[in-house]
Simulated assay, not measured.
Amino acid sequence: MPRPPLPPQPRPGAGAAPGRRPTLSYRKPQLGRDYWVKDDILPDAAAVARRCFDKADWELGAPHRAEPWPGMRSAAALTAGELAPVEAWVKQVTGAKRLWQQATPEGSTLNHNYVQLVGGIESGPRPHTDSLKLCRYAAVIYLSPDPLPAAGTSFYRLRYPDGALGGNFCSPPHANLREALGVTSLPPQAWSEDVRVDNRFNRMLLYRANLVHSASGYFGCEHEDKRMTAVFFWMA
């Protein structure tokens, strides 16, 4: 698939030149500043994984239905008691005083505290940012007991048709990539993987939601060997 042309990138933080679509600024994702990792986040992750695998109320996404998210998902991944220490850690490492779920004036929300199950043939990496209107931080907890380590989470930056590398995060006034780049989507070859965090059972990855990110990959064919994660979105 040919790559659509993208405009030259201005220096980080600069605005777009007149008549050109804005591009993204860049800074290398840094552990402890832009993303945080906590291993063994849940005291009884095996019980949580078993409960999530046994759920019956799954919603189907792509490729089964015309949805922007892949695989299948179900609400209430963690109980309130399980979620409380997770949020305490998020506040500790980010310095946030309060966390909450945001809604747009139209009522749109993100699917906070959902479990997502995606097989190897159901999807591939889909670099994106989460809307700044709805969250500041996002997170996953890897819940597959025997994961493919390379199928963790990656952070990406733009790659131009001439091979030059561009930016990796959205900033106001743009809430997401669609607003920042003026396109609804870009092909996979328009992105270059910058940093990858491996998939490890009971590892939590927390990151700034405006960084371009995606699952690095998926795995498994049967229900209980697919890539399973709990996903979270917080305004702070």
Rank of each mutant, 00 (worst) to 15 (best):
E87R: 15
V90M: 14
M72T: 09
T94L: 11
A66P: 00
A75Y: 05
W69R: 07
K55P: 05
L83R: 11
W69K: 08
S123Y: 04
T79K: 07
T109H: 10
L132F: 05
D57P: 02
T153G: 00
P149G: 09
V48Q: 04
Y114C: 13
L110W: 12
L99V: 09
D54C: 09
V86E: 11
P63W: 10
D146H: 13
T129E: 06
V115A: 12
R50Q: 14
T153R: 00
L78T: 06
R73C: 07
P127Y: 02
F155A: 03
Q116P: 01
Y142W: 14
G107E: 06
K133R: 15
L110D: 11
S74Y: 07
V86L: 15
E67L: 09
V86W: 11
G124C: 03
T104K: 06
K55W: 05
W100A: 10
S74P: 08
G124D: 07
A47F: 04
A103T: 13
A150S: 07
A150Y: 00
R126S: 09
L132P: 00
F155E: 04
Y156R: 02
Q102D: 11
G95H: 02
E67A: 12
Y142T: 12
V140S: 10
R50C: 08
Y160L: 15
H112D: 15
A103H: 11
R98V: 07
L110C: 10
A75P: 12
P125Y: 00
C52Q: 14
S108C: 06
